[in-house]
């Protein structure tokens, strides 16, 4: 099944406040997709901190992905900070590594979708 605009969106752009981050389960993916609103566009990242092989989820509470100043995505296991636009780790144990991008598209009703279906089912 290909996630076209017929599929229910992860959420709508209007559901997200400016700068807000939220995590969504996507069928076929073992970890959530983090969606961050930046103006009228969105960034998508896998909820997998690259500190450990395979990655580990990053929030300290449901949807709590950002640092205090809301300037970076943060992994709350060991304090890694990631650039929201590039996914690059700028501080912490995975310095220089980066998050895995999830390309997103916004349909004409403002619904946010992954651009591509997951390749197979992750375990």
């Amino acid at each position: 099944m290909s996630p076209g605009t017929d599929d229910p969106p992860l959420c709508r752009l209007d559901d997200l406040a400016q700068g807000e981050a939220r995590g969504f389960d996507v069928p076929g993916l073992r970890a959530k997709v983090i969606v961050v609103r930046r103006g009228d566009t969105v960034r998508g990242w896998r909820d997998l901190c690259p500190h450990y092989a395979g990655g580990t989820p990053m929030a300290w509470k449901r949807d709590a992905y950002l640092n205090g100043a809301r300037t970076h995505l943060a992994c709350h296991a060991h304090g890694a900070w990631f650039d929201i636009d590039t996914g690059v780790c700028v501080q912490g144990p995975c310095l220089g590594k980066r998050l895995t991008r999830v390309p997103l598209k916004i349909d004409d009703k403002g619904g946010i979708h992954p651009e591509r279906p997951p390749r197979g089912r992750e375990t």
């Binding site: 989820p57 929030a59 300290w60 943060a74 296991a77 060991h78 304090g79 912490g92």
Partner: peptide, 9 residues
């Protein structure tokens, strides 16, 4: 172990 805003588990 729980992740935390202390930036450690």
């Amino acid at each position: 172990y729980f992740k935390s805003p202390l930036a450690c588990n």
